[in-house]
Every structure is written in C-alpha cells, then in structure tokens.
Design a protein around this nucleic acid. Structure first.
Length: 987
RNA sequence: GCUCAGAUGGUGGAACUGGUAGACACGCAGGACUUAAAAUCCUGUUCCCGUUAAAGGAGUGCGGGUUCGAUUCCCGCUCUGAGUACCA
C-alpha cells in the first residue's frame, strides 16, 4: 500500500495511549534522564504555532534517549491559572474553570495528534486544588522561614524566635526589612503577640509591606516588573501607573548572590545567563556617609540622621566629588531645603511628579535639578559640597543619592556644565575638555593621600581610610528588588492566610487546599476590593482571609517536582522520587521567560534546597531556547486607478479615486515593476478594461484611467497562497468582497504571485498557520520533520511552509524502500553490500552526533541523503532497513512503528529498541580524491591511495599530468600536503 | 546609549577543531509519462564572461590583517534582531 499517513498515525497514537507506552517508572536499573518542556498556558486560540517547535525537539530527544537505554521522564501539563480566562469570565460570566477545561481539551487533542511521547499519567494543572494545595504549602514554608546571612541559607522562623527569646536581636545577621527593632531577650518576652508578629514579619521570606506597585487600572491588578513594558501591560497593552499598596512580597533579594553564582554552574545559553546577570545587577563598590554640615539654621528635624549615605562603584574618585545629588523623593529633601530654596525645590518636585514614569525614562537628554541650599562634608578632605536634587537619581536604586564626580561620569558632567558647578580632574591622563573621562588608568592627582597611586591601590586605600573614620565601607549593591507576590484577581491560588488585628497568620496545614470560593461576578467589589471580596463565607474562624491571589509565576515555580510524583497527596513530591529524578537534565523553552519564570524557579528551588526538601541547588541543568516563530505574511497587490467623468464639466475633468464598484484589478507581484513602467501595456489594459465594462461605465458616463495609477499591497490569507502563488479560486471563494464585485487578475502564465514580508504572527495579518491543517494535509511525521528541517532550533525564523513538500516526499521515498513497484511490502534477508552498510553507518554516526548537539535540522538532511543513496542502490535488505527504522523513529515515530511491525517485530517494542551501534570499519576508505589547489585556489582533484605517506603524495601530485598543466613548467616554491585532506602548491 | 546574537545563491539553510563554499530541500528552467492536468520520474540551476563540451574571472554584509590556505581566527565599520535602559 502507498504511504497512508492518516491511518498509520491514528493507529499508533491510539496504541501508545492504550498501552501506556511512555509511562516512566520512578525506579529503574537504567540511568535516568529528565526532559522538560515549558508547559503552556491553555489559551482559547489553541496551541500556538511556536509551541510545537520546542516540543518536537524535546520529544525527539526523549525518544532518542529511550533508545539509548535511559529511563526517560518526559511529562506535560498546563499552567492553567491566568488572566485571559478571567477576562473572558468577566465578559461572559462563565466560570474560568469551564473555559480552562475546554481549552485544555483542545490543547490535548492538538498535542496528541503530533505524536508526542509524553507520560500523561503525570499531567499537572496549576489550577487544580490537588496541585495548588502544594503551591500554598510552599508559600507557608516561605512564610515560616527567614534568611540567615551567616549560614547563607534560609532557616526556620522558629530558630529566629528561639534566638530572640534567648539573646534578643543581638547577633542576628539576616536579610530583612530596613527598619527593624533592636531589643533584648527580656524586651522580646515583654512584647505583645502583636508586636512580636509584626517584628517577625520583617524577617519572613514572604512578607507584607507597603510597596510601590505597577498598578494596571484596566486589568484591575498589580503587575510584576517583567509584565510591564514601557509603561504598558505586556498582556493587552494597557497603561500602568505607580501606586502604593499593601502587598505580599518574596524576599528573592536574599538569594541574589546565589542566583548569580549559580549561573556559572549550569549549561544555559550565554545570552540568557547574561539577561539574568543584568537583572540581578550586582555592583561592587562602597557606601560613603557625607555628614550634613552642622547647625542647620532653619532648624528642620533630620529624624536622627545627620548624614547622607551614597553608594558608589568608583570610591577612588571621591576627591573629585563637587556636589551631591539626591532623588526628589529622598526622605531628607524637606529637611535639607533652606527657606531661600524652598520655592525652587517645591517647584522642581511638582514638575517631576507631573512627568510620568514614561516621560522620565524617555527624556534622558534634558538636564534638570534644583539646589537645596544645604551642604555636606567630604569625609576625606573636609570640603563643603552642595546638595542638589535631580530626577536622574532614582529613589529605588542604592540609597537614592549619588556623589557626583563630573570629571568621571558623563551625567554628572552634563549636570555640572548646566549648573556651572566645578569639574575637578583627578587622574593625570584624564581628558575632560568636552566630556567626562571614566578612565581607571593613570595616576591620581588632586586627591590627597592617594595622589600618585593607581586604581587598585587607591580604591583599597580609600576604603580602609573610610572604615577608620567610620564614614563608609565596601558594599555590594543589587539592582534586583524583592518580587511582588499578589494579584487583585480571582483566577489564581488563594493565599493561605487570614488576618487578625491587621496581621497575617497562616491557616493550619490540615486546612489545605484553601479552595477558591465561588463568586457572583469576576470583578472587584464596589469598594474596590479584589473579586474574592465578593465571596460569602470567605472567612477563617479567627479572621478574614486574604483577598488577593497568587501571581502567575507561583504555580510554575516548582511544577517540575510535581511531575516526579504527580499523584502524591501527602507531599508535594515524595522524597524517593525527588532523590531519584533530582533535577531536570534538559529544559527546552523560550527566552521570554529569562527574568520571570526561570529566575523565580531558581529562587524557589534554592529555598526548597535550604529546607532539605529537594537535593539539587539548580533545577535545570541544561537549557535550550527554541527560537521565536515569526509570521510570514503574503500580500496581494491591487491597482488603484482613477475613474474619470467622460464629459468634462466647466471646471475641467472631474476625477475621483478608486472604482471598486466597477472592477477590482489585482496585479501579479512579479509583473509589477515592468508593468507599471510599460506605457504600452498600461494603455492596453486601460482599453481592455474600458471595453469589458463598457456598459456599466457608459451608463454612468465614466471612464477608467490608468494614468497615475498606484499599487497598494493588502494582506492575504497565507493559507490560500502556496510558494507565493495565489490560489485564485479559493481567494474568490473566501473573500465576500471579491464575490460581489467584478475582479480582474493581471498575470502571465496563469500564475498570480504575491509579495511577502516577515512580521508578527497575528490573525489581523492573515499569516497564522495552524498546525492542525498541516497535519491534515501531510501528517504528523511530516510536520515533525519539517519543523526540525526549517533551521537551527535556537534561531528565530518565520513560519513558512514552502519546503514542506520535500519532507513529505522524503517519507514516501523511505516507505517505498520497503515496498516493490506495486506497493507490496517486500524486504530481503540477503547480506547487505559494502555500499549499503556504508550509507547506514554514516547515518548512524551522523544522527547520533547531531542529536547530542541538538542540531536536528542537519540530521533531517542526512536522512534524506541516506534514503537517496539507498534508493539509488536499490537496497531492500532487512539488516539495513530495520536499523534505519530505529534511528528515524524519534523524528517520525508513526511511520517507523508501522514499518517496524511490518518487518515482523512486536508492536510497541520500537520505542525501547536498542539504538544501532556505529561501526567505523564500514567507513574505511583506501582511496582519497585529493583536492589540489595552487596558491589556495582549488584547481583539480587527484585520486591517491590513503596508504601513501606525505612524501609519496607530494611526488605523485607533482608528476601528475593534470597538475603539470596547471603548473605550466614552473616549480612550486612550497608544497603543503595534509594527509587525507588537501594538497596546496605555492607558485 | 549599553549588552548579546546574527549577516552565506531567487528562498530555508549546510560546511565538525582554518583545508574542495553553496550539502539537503524549496523554487525556477528544460525533458519523460499523459488526450490534458495533477501526481511521479530524469536533467540543469552562485554570479559574470564565454560556449559545442571548454577555458577564464569574481564570490560567504563592508574595509583591513594573520596564514601555504579564512564563511571559520584578529582589528575596525555597516546593517538586522533580541534584551536592557538616567543603576551612581
């Protein structure tokens, strides 16, 4: 029979499901291998076309690893809490769980028909109570923990309480809020319950704090920094504003250093690691205190502080400081402002506030600021330094204050120039005539005791001096902020917390899961509380439950552990399962999760490790980014002509644009250039059109004019365009507009071509290609191989189905190797020939090498070469073909299962068949065709035995008649012979 | 601005540690089969010049360099994509 992909694929998908072919055991003599895909959010649009790319790659790898004798865990699930389902619920009143369920069904159907080897018995859904019970449980562990900097790990809050009871706050080195109390053991005991809990909250790894959040009024929720792009929400593109709110936060900053260090231990793409490094943003420097010049005559209260603390990465430039700049929001601004400067400062602050965050970011060129009137003292030379405020200093970074060194920092330089502040050079080789020079080379000048020193020495000396004076110390600063962990939304995990006297308490573990309550509407309450405020009975016996829910990243920050032991209802995953699978060996997914999911997951993993709940410090040993799939749009070109009034009126010729109601004229793209410049052809077309539509035109006294005609490109559905050639019949069928109007297609040779462009894939651009359609037309095996054939996995590429025919032809050709001319299955048991074995072993080695380096596109090409060779050799030997079936099976599993059984093997054994062993003996050659180049230019080939040594080769080449011809009697100056590779003659 | 990635025929792309640039596939052109079309098969296909096959020459974004030899290594630049953005 001919290759019937539909029957074959359905049959084997059913077989795999019925026989649990890909069920992984949590125990095996085989080595383990864990292949993870980023699980999808089940959106209403169905599986996004970008998804299969990574899934196919990971599936090929999983199937390959099984053949290689590994116990492979390859699970799939759904990140099923999220905004779109809730938006839909708001519009339709339908419960998000209903939509989610329906969408999951679609996803499952789509995934199944691609033939993935997932172990579905381990499926997870973040929105099912059986799953989010453990998300809530992990939240509780975080609540019950603090970060001990001395031990450099998280510890139980009970340890901290014990310490407080015994020693008070002394000797605690914790990552905590800035304002903590200092107290003795006795004082602690004397604290009320409320005071104790309030104090402990400042240490917990998840805590409540008033923070400035990205509030999105349109979505009615708070967004994480990585969900905001240029002041707009990433999802939906609604404006985002800054708002102060009581919020749950996660003390991810406690792990900043470990998150940074850990990057060096994992095999991830360098750009991705770089993104995380930038996000963490470690800078090594020093903090310096500039004491405020005493006796503030205007008598403001400084609140105990008599200094401004700055953070700098160039403490060596401290002698070049000529002013201090603090953020307009800095807490000392009011205190520092002198009465004379009051008006100016106030005006500046008002002006800054008016500017939105967006403007402030966009407008980096204009210099602005205001003088407070106060001065501080440089701790190293006692100089009086004016204090300014300016919005280029950010309140949220460092201490919100900088020491300005205009000679070395360009922004400070511009500021100094603008406000006429002094610029002092501090390094002998510095050139500061037109701009700042941040050099670290040269020797210091104008710099007190470090004059004459070099950078390293000077930095150390300054820090030592500052420490002596108590005016500063070495300090490391991170850009990363604690992660906000709350959404004012319904469709998320409820936070397992209730409030008593305004302080949060955990619910009892026995009460988990705290199930999402039913509500009447999915909108905030009239008083502006989150949707959970609508639930009746949303109360704990001791107090009110938390009304916000967890953010999207909560459920995805630990899901790979749930796969290890998905049915466990006593633990998030059993110890044995965790100790067996340990960590993910290969993770494939998009780089868009670089600073979200992938960072939060590493954070939770490190925390779980500190709690001795998991065994690995890093969750994803190797990670590969699949490239983004862009859209490839097609355009149909329409001629915009004019319709002219036949009889001119007194004002001359009356013209109007367009004539769609008479006839729409489309121009084949390949004709466009020559056509519009060809006056004769244009005139001919004009006459033709006027003749053809004469009746209609005459009736209205009109005439078509192609003078000054232009062409406009319109998006056309890529699904009715094949290799840029439009299917006109389908076009007329699909577009109502074309049906109701007369339509002309200007073309040659019956081919109407469209132009194309790469842009974002979207419905509005008619460039969405649904994998379902391709499977219908070519089958899953073709789709799988074609997606790999497109190019390197990591590279972004437009979704273009131009070459899919070639892959389909390849599979048919492969099928034909096993069949005779009448499509009868027919293989021979004869011994394979040398040439057949050579082809086979070439591909065995090549595919193995390619898969190991994730170069799937090159192995598809190699398969084609192998099948071409075997076809030419008319190979029908079982010994060769059976091995071919095994090595091709990870790529095209359905056709291979079918052939495997036709070859007489037991159904279902292919997935665990041993991978053929490569034997180099079959590839040994005894001759090589040496390319001979002269001065590096390839001229000719000479066949020589590989047993010859260099000297003999040289002789043979020089005496070769062909080579002599090229040498033209000259003797080469130099002869380079690389055995088995090349010969190069220098003349 | 900074950081990272990339640039090879008409198109997607190949070329492992410097060693025959353009594998494989699409498209295109020509041919076979067919009443015809589709499907299938065969041949050709980097460009220029030339042609009976030839023989030349140029060529991996641009300009230099190292080397017997560079798509590959080094320096400078241009463009494209991604991330990030007054980070002190």
């Amino acid at each position: 029979m001919d290759y019937q992909f539909k029957d074959i694929e359905k049959k084997w998908q059913q077989f795999w499901a019925d026989n649990n072919t890909f069920k992984a055991e949590n125990n095996s003599n085989k080595p383990k291998y864990y292949v993870l895909d980023m699980f999808p959010y089940p959106s209403g649009a169905g599986l996004h076309v970008g998804h299969p790319l990574g899934y196919i790659a990971s599936d090929i790898f999983s199937r390959y690893k099984r053949l290689k004798g590994f116990n492979v865990l390859h699970p799939m699930g759904y990140d099923s809490f999220g905004l779109p389902a809730e938006q839909y619920a708001i519009q339709t009143g339908q419960h998000p769980s209903v939509t989610t369920e329906a969408n999951i069904a679609t996803y499952r159907r789509q995934l199944d028909q691609i033939g993935f080897s997932f172990d579905w018995s381990r499926e997870v859904r973040t929105s099912s109570p059986g799953y989010y019970k453990w998300t809530q449980w992990i939240f509780m562990q975080l609540f019950n923990s603090w970060y001990n900097k001395d031990a450099d790990k998280a510890e139980s809050i009970d340890n901290l309480i014990a310490h407080f009871e015994k020693n008070g706050s002394a000797g605690i080195n914790a990552v905590c809020d800035e304002e903590i109390l200092t107290f003795s053991a006795d004082e602690w005991s004397a604290f009320t319950e409320y005071q104790q809990q309030a104090e402990l909250l400042k240490y917990r790894l998840t805590y409540l704090r008033e923070s400035t959040v990205n509030w999105c009024p349109a979505l009615g929720t708070v967004l994480a920094n990585d969900e905001v792009k240029d002041g707009f929400s990433e999802r939906g593109g609604y404006p985002v504003e800054q708002k102060k709110m009581m919020q749950w936060s996660m003390r991810i900053t406690a792990y900043a250093e470990r998150l940074l260090q850990g990057l060096d231990t994992i095999d991830w793409p360098e750009p991705l690691k770089e993104m995380q490094r930038n996000w963490i943003g470690k800078s090594v420097g020093a903090s310096v205190k500039f004491s405020i010049t005493p006796t503030l005559s205007f008598g403001e209260d400084l609140g105990g502080a008599n200094y401004i603390e700055v953070f700098t990465t160039r403490v060596d430039t401290i002698f070049g400081v000529t002013f201090l700049v603090i953020a307009p929001e800095h807490e000392l601004v009011q205190a520092l402002t002198t009465p004379e400067q009051q008006a100016e400062i106030e005006a500046y602050i008002t002006q800054t506030k008016k500017k939105s965050e967006l403007d402030r970011m966009a407008d980096t060129k204009t210099v602005s600021g205001a003088f407070t009137g106060s001065y501080v003292t440089n701790p190293l030379n006692g100089e009086q330094i004016p204090v300014w405020i300016a919005d280029y200093v950010l309140a949220g970074y460092g201490t919100g204050a900088v020491m300005a060194v205009p000679s070395g920092d360009q922004r400070d330089y511009l500021f100094a120039k603008h406000f006429n502040l002094p610029i002092v050079p501090i390094i002998d080789i510095q050139n500061i005539e037109t701009e700042a020079d941040p050099t670290k080379d040269g020797k210091y000048i104008n710099s007190g005791f470090i004059n004459g020193m070099a950078y390293k020495e000077a930095t150390a000396a300054v820090i030592t001096k500052l420490e002596e004076l108590g005016a500063g110390k070495a300090k490391v600063n991170f850009r990363m902020r604690d992660a906000i962990f709350g959404r004012q939304r319904y469709w998320g995990e409820p936070v397992p917390v209730y409030f008593k006297d305004g302080l949060p308490y955990l619910i009892d573990e026995k009460e988990l899961p705290l199930v999402l309550p039913e509500i009447d509407k999915y909108l905030p309450t009239e008083s502006g509380e989150p949707p959970l405020g609508r639930a009746t009975d949303w109360k704990h016996p001791e107090g009110e439950y938390e009304l916000s829910t967890m953010p999207g990243w909560a459920g995805s920050s630990w899901y790979w552990y749930r796969y290890m032991d998905a049915q466990n209802n006593r633990e998030f995953a059993g110890k044995e399962a965790i100790e067996y699978w340990k960590a993910v060996d290969l993770y494939i997914g998009g780089s868009e999760h670089a600073t979200g999911h992938l960072l939060y997951s590493r954070f939770w993993n490190k925390f779980l490790k500190d709690m001795n709940l998991v065994v690995e410090e890093e969750p994803f040993k190797k990670l590969i980014n699949q490239g983004m799939i862009q859209g490839r749009s097609n355009f149909i070109h329409k001629i915009n002509y004019q319709v002219v009034q036949k009889t001119s009126n007194p004002d001359g010729i009356n013209t109007k644009l367009g004539g769609d109601d008479i006839v729409i004229v489309y121009l084949s793209y390949d004709l466009e250039k020559q056509f519009l410049n060809d006056k004769i052809r244009v005139k001919k077309l004009e006459d033709d059109l006027n003749l053809k539509y004469k009746e209609d035109l005459d009736g209205r006294g009109l005439q078509i004019s192609l003078v000054n005609a232009t062409v406009t490109a319109w998006h056309v559905d890529v699904n009715i365009v094949n290799n840029d050639i439009l299917d006109i019949a389908k076009f007329l069928e699909n577009f109502p507009k074309s049906k109701d109007y007369n339509t002309e297609f200007i073309m040659e040779d019956n081919k109407f071509t469209c132009s194309s462009e790469v842009e974002k894939m979207s419905k509005s651009k008619f460039n969405v290609v649904n994998p379902d359609d391709l499977i219908e037309r070519y089958g899953a095996d073709t789709l799988r191989m074609y997606e790999m054939f497109l190019g390197p996995l990591e590279q972004s590429k437009p979704w273009n189905t131009n070459g899919i025919e070639g892959v389909f032809k390849f599979l048919r050709k492969f099928w034909r190797l096993f069949h005779d001319a009448d499509w009868n299955f027919n293989v021979s048991d004869a011994e394979p020939t040398k040439a057949e074995l050579k082809s086979l072993h070439k591909i065995i080695r090549k595919v193995e090498e390619d898969i190991e380096r994730f170069s799937f596109n090159t192995s598809v090409s190699s398969f084609m070469i192998a099948v071409n060779e075997l076809t030419d050799l008319k190979c029908d030997k079982r010994a060769v073909l059976q091995d071919m079936v095994i090595i091709l099976s990870p790529y095209a599993p359905h056709i291979c299962e079918e052939l495997w059984v036709l070859l007489g093997n037991t159904a279902g054994t292919l997935s665990y068949a041993p991978y053929p062993k490569f034997n180099p003996d079959y590839l040994v050659e005894d001759e090589f065709s040496y390319p001979v180049s002269i001065n590096g230019k390839m001229k000719t080939n000479v066949n020589l035995s590989l047993s010859l040594d260099t000297k003999e080769i040289e002789e043979m080449i020089l005496t070769n008649a062909d080579v002599q011809k090229y040498l033209d009697g000259k003797t080469p100056k130099k002869v380079i012979v690389v055995k088995g590779r090349i010969v190069n003659l220098v003349v």
